[in-house]
Design a protein around this nucleic acid. Structure first.
Lengths: 209, 209
DNA sequence: GTCTATACTGAGATAGAC
DNA sequence: GTCTATCTCAGTATAGAC
C-alpha cells in the first residue's frame, strides 16, 4: 500500500483539480484518502504547503518538457538565435496541453499566477525555465532593452495565465485541434507584441525622464 | 452620522483593499465599522455579495472614464476608425492610474479577474464597456475575424490583469512618470499583438474546420 | 424596516497519548 | 508516525427588540 504522505498528495491533487483550492477542505481530503486529519499537518505543515507540493509535482514535468523543447530548438538553430514563434511555442504548448488533460487543475495553476500567491518554494522551480527562455528571447529580440523585455515577458505570462484559467466567451472545450488553434492564436498575439518597436528608445527616455 | 449600510461598504472597501478578500473576516469589518455582524447579512446577504458591491462602486468611475475617453476619440476620428493605440490607452489608462492611487485594491481587482470570481452582478457592469471597445477595435482591425478578435481581447485582458496584480521583478512603485511609461509599454505590446496577421485565415479554417 | 444577541456548522490548527 | 480530542475562528441563520 502506498504510504500516507503520498496518498494525501494524490488525493489533494485530484480534489484541488476538480473543485479548486478554496472549495476543498482538509477533512474531505483525509476522508477520501483514508488517513487522519493530523497526518496532513504532520507531513505538510499546512493546507497551503500541501498546495505547494501538489503544484510543484505537476509543474516539474511541464518545465522539463519546456527545457527539452528549447534544447532542440537551439541545437537546430546552430549558433544563431532561435525563431521567436518557436521559442514561444516551446514555452506555451507544454502548459496549454495540460488544459485539455485536466481543465480544473490548469485553472488552479493559472489562478495562482493571477493571485500572486505563487510561493517562494514554487517560484524557485521556475527560475531555471525563466532564465533560459529570457535569454533565448533576448537573443531573438535584439531591439529590446533588458527592462523592456522583462515587461513584455510579464505581459506574456499574464496572457498565458488568463488563458489557463478562463476562455473567451462563446468557446466551449479546448480539445485536440481547438487547443492547437488556440495555442497558435496565443503564439501569434504574443510574438506580435514582442516584435513591436521598443517603447523605451533613448529619444523617448530623454523626453520622459 | 453615515448610515450602517454605507459604513459597512466603506470599511469593507478599505480592508479588502489592504488585506485582500480572503484574509478579511466579516467580524473584522463589523468591529471597525462599529456595527453588528447580522447587519452585513441584512444589507448585503453574504460576504461575496458585499465584495460585489465594493467592486462595483470602484469600477463604475473607471468605466465611465473609459467611455468618455472613447467618446472623445470617436468624435475626433469623424466617421473613420479610431487609432488602435488611442483606443487601448482609453481602455487601459483609467484602470492603471488606480494602481498608483491604491495598489492593494487594484491587486484585488486584478486578482478577481484572474480567479475567475468576477461575479455575474459585476460582469453586467462591464458589458457596455466591453461592447463599445470591441466594436471600436473591430473597426480599427478589419483584418481580424470576430472570433480572432475575441481571443485577442482575451489576451489583452490577461496582460492587463496580470499587470494590475503584480509588477515584473526589479520594479518598485509605479508612480507618476513610471506609471505613464508602464502604461505605454502595455499599449505598445498589446497593439503589436492585435496588429499581428490573422492566424485563422480562410485557408486554415477550411483545413481545420 | 433596522438592528442586536446568540446559536449553529464547518473550517484549519495543535497538544499530547500511544 | 499516527490518532483522539480539542481549540479558535470563520461564515451563516434566526428570533426577537426597537
Amino acid at each position: 500500500m502506498i504510504d500516507t504522505k503520498t496518498r494525501i498528495l494524490d488525493t489533494a491533487e485530484r480534489l484541488f483539480g476538480d473543485q479548486g483550492y478554496g472549495a476543498t477542505s482538509l477533512r474531505q481530503i483525509i476522508t477520501e484518502a483514508g488517513v487522519n486529519l493530523a497526518a496532513i499537518h504532520y507531513h505538510y505543515g499546512s493546507k497551503e504547503e500541501l498546495l505547494d507540493q501538489v503544484v510543484m509535482r505537476k509543474a516539474d514535468p511541464v518545465n522539463r518538457e519546456r527545457l527539452e523543447a528549447l534544447d532542440r530548438l537551439e541545437a537546430a538553430a546552430g549558433g544563431g538565435p532561435a525563431p521567436i514563434e518557436a521559442i514561444l511555442e516551446a514555452f506555451l504548448a507544454p502548459a496549454l496541453t495540460r488544459v485539455a488533460a485536466n481543465p480544473e487543475f490548469s485553472k488552479l495553476m493559472g489562478r495562482m499566477l493571477g493571485e500572486g500567491l505563487m510561493p517562494s518554494l514554487a517560484r524557485k522551480h521556475f527560475r531555471t525555465v525563466a532564465n533560459r527562455f529570457t535569454t533565448a528571447l533576448a537573443r531573438a529580440l535584439p531591439h529590446l532593452s533588458a527592462v523592456e523585455l522583462r515587461w513584455r515577458t510579464h505581459f506574456l505570462i499574464g496572457a498565458m495565465a488568463h488563458m489557463l484559467c478562463s476562455k473567451p466567451e462563446g468557446n466551449s472545450a479546448l480539445e485536440g485541434v481547438e487547443l492547437q488553434r488556440a495555442t497558435r492564436r496565443l503564439v501569434t498575439f504574443v510574438s506580435g507584441g514582442l516584435r513591436a518597436p521598443a517603447a523605451d528608445d533613448p529619444k523617448t527616455e530623454v523626453k520622459l525622464g
